[in-house]
Design a protein around this nucleic acid. Structure first.
Length: 867
RNA sequence: GCCCAGGUGGCGAAAUGGUAGACGCAGGGGACUCAAAAUCCCCCGCAGCAAUGCGUGUCGGUUCGAGUCCGACCCUGGGCACCA
């Protein structure tokens, strides 16, 4: 046994033993309760970040502790290996995406392995492997058969930088979510998954996801965006240039407030609406405003405070119930992409319409009243939009009705006139999966001049993607690959061509977690392994996937269920979203406002006399730099920490221990160099304690009932801390698990007794408690001190009831809720004994004026005397 | 504007309605050392010599007792958004 802590050697030895004995290879075993814990599939960028270390250590702590508690644990790892970065790298380095990707995977894996994570690497998958994406293609064909997948020609979001189509969900602020390029509209054919067919179920089942953070559930609900209302039409006689009525003479609108229909005083349409286009033809003066709406930053966050702007088209429509003529305005607040691109305006009861009407002097009509409130068309009040208390007025036959009754009555009347009906609209759109790029799953379709689009026969799968293409930025290289392209039509045998579009990579990540369960199954997409391991017990990943990935995976699971492949409808029982790792950053701005970022090591921080940081200077010139606060680690800000450097200097256990201790795992945590030192210091102390007491612990006998006071005190401390650690494991609060194991060592070091059995028991608890966080050192000490050969197979310790019972207990004494003293009483002392002891306290008497009014005793806790 | 999370020492943070600040970092003092590093010991919310008082974003409330529960508000972070 080394006298000093030597992490490099300890960690290599432990990892070799785990690998040689296949300790973490998961085998289906119905005699044990299963637990499937999985981290979100990483993209193989080639660089392992400290954030990865934190995320996977969370996963690892969970897996290792549950394994000790008797669960059959599966913790797999794989690679989200398709996608655009590989094509960009190909352009930059003239390497094929396949070569680049596989090199990155090897690289990243080699950086990951020194961390000693308990992954079952035998189940590793890469989504760019034909054995994997074959099943993307297979299930695509299944969905095509059932109509869940379909082809349509549609105006799509075209990303001019990525040269690809984006789903509506992937457009952020009018820009591609990855490239940031301003999205253009283009019309091309593509394949879609009918996620909206599952909209109701996706929404309803959110209620069942009790193991998910409320925040994520709320975000999914908002994304799906169910909205119940009435869709109806205003008639008009506006005709296009050829004299045909536009949209058959109807202006369709959707409203959730059909009750206020008698308060409609005008209509507002989007700038792209056909009526707007026609109005501009008739009156070119409208063009500048229409242009402004199309190109103006309609999705800027500041728009919340921006003025509602509009312009009248000079066109009129007819109110379907009153027959009144209503002016049609083009409004910058109406979106063509939502509903019908037109709204009925009720300035009396919609805040937005109210502001618009005021600005342009349009009529305002009150049709809802609330008892006790006074209406004024001059200023807006919250209650104008009240659906609960509001009652209809100035609305003819609807007067006196409440919100729901009024909506029903209006909907019925519109339906009777064949002018509209109740309708549910959704924010959610179908998922476009066609990508005009090379590095992805080929869509298994053959275009035949005679037979049209023909699905590739199942027996011909997979359609293998050639791996030697090198994209050059001019589009999809598959278009020039004759050997890929040319194929006989499966139907008629004539010369035909393959589809060259590939699938969105969100397809790959929608079910990979099931493939881990049957990674080598050549016969089926999923099999017995999936039956055994799914649904997943704990999914761990970033909040940035709260909507897209998690919604797609839920949808895909339901589609698989409906295809008879699995029996469950929700893939993830519990979801944990971990926080990011942040670090201080420092910069200096040049005269052009360009920031130069300094590495934290290049900066000295100056503190005031209270230790508060007040300013920072660069070491190189002593001149001030700006303290940029703590930000997400990023290369551009020079505040990245390399896991490799930390592991080399301190070892993996230190890196793991620090990232767990830095803060609650679900919140962001700040990197701290001195904090890392602290974690290292602790592990050294732990090792030194093991060395110092090795002989005593190795040769210790059985624990007996005859214990000295110090022995009892130590056991109480150890076992009660273990209880706390257990509770914190349960709720995944690993930062306090670590502080718990720190307490254990503090208690052991403070122990004055000489009972070898107590020492052995206590240190054994400490080793198992710290094992999930710092497995290597625990593994080595476990062996060296003669506890056993493999700590991973040891049973998780149970707090012992006899250690937790105390003869005497300390009670805090309060007067009027303020702490005034403490007493030591027998654990089963009678109430009057406790009361007498409390009242006898000097500190209590001083604050007591005569007899106490009341004495409250909280058993085992405190006594509160009400004076 | 809507939704979600959060606001506690110099810092990261902890606390089933019951001792606020555990655990750690930084800081101060001391021991060991020729010296340094490492290690060990002590102190460490604010004010005060002390007794004590004040302290968990603000203001109220419930309670014997509130960081924790309720109501209103302020601030920070994240997400979504002219969503009708």
């Amino acid at each position: 046994m080394h006298e000093h802590y030597t992490p490099a050697q300890i960690e290599a030895d432990a990892q070799a033993q785990w690998e040689n004995n296949k300790v973490f290879q998961a085998v289906e075993d119905v005699s044990k309760p299963k637990y499937y814990a999985c981290s979100m599939l990483p993209y193989p960028s080639g660089k392992l970040h400290m954030g990865h270390v934190r995320n996977y250590t969370i996963n690892d702590m969970l897996a290792r502790q549950l394994r000790m508690r008797g669960f059959n644990v599966l913790m797999p790892m794989g690679w989200d290996a398709f996608g655009l970065p590989a094509e960009n790298a190909a352009i930059a380095y003239k390497k094929s995406p396949a070569e680049w990707t596989y090199a990155n995977i090897a690289d990243m894996k080699s950086q990951m392995q020194p961390l000693g994570l308990a992954f079952d690497w035998s189940r590793e998958i890469a989504t760019c492997d034909p054995d994997y994406y074959k099943w993307n293609q297979w299930f695509f064909l299944k969905m095509l058969e059932t109509g869940v997948a379909y082809k349509k020609t549609q105006i799509v979001n075209w990303d001019p930088v990525d040269q690809t189509v984006l789903a509506n969900e992937q457009v952020v602020d009018g820009r591609g979510w990855r490239s940031g390029a301003i999205v253009e509209k283009r019309e091309i054919p593509g394949y879609y998954f009918g996620i909206t067919q599952y909209a109701d179920e996706l929404l309803d089942d959110i209620d069942q996801l009790e193991g998910w953070p409320d925040m994520v559930r709320a975000m999914q609900r908002n994304w799906i965006g169910k909205s119940e209302g009435v869709r109806f039409a205003f008639d008009h006689d506006v005709k296009d240039a050829d004299g045909a009525p536009i949209n058959d003479g109807k202006l369709w609108v959707f409203t959730t407030r059909a009750d206020t229909i008698m308060g409609v005083t005008f209509c507002a349409i989007a700038a792209e609406h056909p009526l707007a286009t026609r109005a501009a033809e008739l009156n070119p003066a409208l063009l500048p405003f229409i242009d402004e709406c199309k190109h103006g930053g309609t999705t800027e966050a500041e728009l919340a405070t921006q003025d509602k702007k509009g312009v009248s088209t000079g066109l009129f429509v007819t109110h379907p119930l009153t027959g009144a003529q209503l002016e049609v305005w083009i409004g910058n607040y109406v979106l063509m992409g939502y509903g019908d691109g037109a709204v009925m305006a009720v300035p009396g009861h919609d805040e937005r319409d109210f502001a618009f009407a005021h600005k342009y002097g349009l009529p305002i009509r009150q049709v809802v009243a609330v008892d006790g409130e006074t209406y004024s068309a001059e200023t807006w009040a919250e209650w104008y939009g009240d659906k609960v208390r509001g009652v209809m007025i100035n609305s003819g036959k609807y007067d006196g009705l409440g919100y729901k009754a009024a909506v029903d009555a209006v909907a019925a009347d519109l339906a009777a006139k064949d002018a509209g009906e109740k309708k549910t609209t959704w924010r959610l759109r179908d998922w476009g999966i066609s990508r005009q790029r090379y590095w992805g799953t080929p869509i298994p379709i053959i275009h035949c001049p005679c037979c049209g689009d023909v699905p590739v026969p199942y027996e011909d799968l997979p359609v293998v993607l050639p791996t030697d293409c090198i994209p050059d930025g001019s589009g999809n290289p598959l278009k020039h690959r004759e050997d890929f392209l040319n194929v006989a039509c499966p139907k008629c045998g004539e010369a035909a061509q393959r589809e060259t579009d590939t699938m969105d990579t969100f397809v790959d990540s929608s079910w990979y977690f099931m493939r881990y369960c049957d990674p080598k199954n050549g016969e089926a997409m999923v099999g017995e392994g999936t039956k055994y391991w799914m649904a997943m017990d704990q999914y761990i990943g970033g909040i940035e996937h709260a909507v897209l990935h998690l919604l797609y995976a839920r949808f895909w699971t339901k589609a698989m269920r409906d295809a008879g492949l699995v029996s469950f409808g929700e893939p993830f029982k519990n979801l944990f979203t971990q926080g990011m790792l942040l670090r201080d950053c420092y910069y200096r701005e040049d005269t052009h406002g360009k920031k130069r970022w300094f590495y934290p090591s290049e900066v000295d921080v100056l503190h005031d006399d209270k230790g508060r940081p007040v300013s920072a200077i660069a070491k190189e010139d002593g001149q001030p730099v700006v303290m940029g606060g703590i930000e997400k680690m990023s290369k551009s800000k020079n505040n990245v920490v390399e896991p490799k450097d930390i592991i080399e200097q301190y070892g993996a256990d230190t890196a793991r221990l620090f990232t767990m201790f830095a803060g609650p795992p679900d919140q962001s945590a700040a990197w701290s160099d001195s904090g890392v030192e602290g974690a290292y210091r602790y592990l050294r102390r732990l090792w030194a304690f093991g060395v110092k007491h090795a002989e005593t612990i190795r040769t210790a006998g059985e624990l007996t009932a005859a214990l000295a006071k110090d022995d009892k005190a130590l056991r109480f401390e150890i076992h009660s801390t273990l209880k706390q650690i257990d509770a914190d494991f349960e709720r995944l609060q690993y930062n306090t698990v670590v502080s718990g194991v720190m307490k254990l060592l503090n208690a052991l070091e403070a122990y004055k007794g000489d009972n070898a059995a107590v020492l052995r028991e206590s240190f054994g608890i400490l080793l198992r408690a710290i094992y999930p966080a710092a497995p290597h050192i625990a593994h080595q000490l476990w062996r060296e001190l003669g506890y056993g050969d493999e700590i991973a197979d040891a049973a998780w310790p149970e707090p012992a009831a006899d250690a937790l019972t105390q003869d005497e207990i300390k009670l805090m004494v309060q007067v009027n809720g303020k702490l005034r003293g403490e007493i030591l009483v027998a654990k089963d002392a009678a109430k009057d004994v406790i009361e007498a002891a409390a009242l006898a306290q000097e500190g209590v008497q001083r604050f007591l004026d005569g007899a106490p009014k009341k004495v409250i005793i909280v058993p085992g806790r405190l006594v509160n005397i009400v004076a």
